[in-house]
């Protein structure tokens, strides 16, 4: 079990990333899709330059739960697969590393899409 201060670090780092995201929302009027794309690309970049693992050691869920972690594992998968299986790895690495998340999102969306119905906003 971790010490309690780990959770504090997770809270602060995760919160800060969302804080930056909110600044982007307000300042640039970015839509959801653009925000997500920006942070995924940031994750890919951090992994590519080799910074992500160090940050992840420190921030843990603070950077793995934000979609940055998704981008990072795409890049990490590609890098590892290229090292182990060469050119084929370029094609297989990224998506297979993230297959769990993508498949889960699609599967749950499908199931809940069947079950539930979209409701009008009631705010």
């Amino acid at each position: 079990m971790n010490d309690w201060y780990v959770y504090l670090i997770v809270f602060l780092t995760g919160g800060t990333i969302c804080f930056i995201g909110q600044i982007l929302v307000i300042k640039t009027k970015m839509t959801t899709a653009r925000i997500l794309v920006t942070f995924v690309l940031l994750g890919v970049f951090l992994q590519a330059v080799g910074l992500f693992d160090a940050i992840s050691q420190f921030c843990k869920a603070g950077i793995n739960v934000p979609i940055i972690g998704f981008g990072a594992s795409l890049a990490k998968g590609a890098i590892n697969a290229v090292k182990s299986s060469g050119i084929l790895g370029i094609f297989t690495g990224g998506l297979s590393a993230c297959a769990g998340g993508i498949a889960a999102a699609i599967f749950f969306a499908f199931i809940f899409g069947i079950i539930f119905k979209a409701k009008t906003k009631k705010m």
Binding site: V25, T31, T32, A118, K119, T120, K121
Partner: peptide, 18 residues
């Protein structure tokens, strides 16, 4: 209609955006 317009012009109804 709010919901038809929202679907056509903006985002899905259940999307959690501001």
């Amino acid at each position: 209609h709010f919901s038809t317009a929202e679907r056509q012009f903006r985002t899905p109804l259940e999307l959690g955006s501001q």
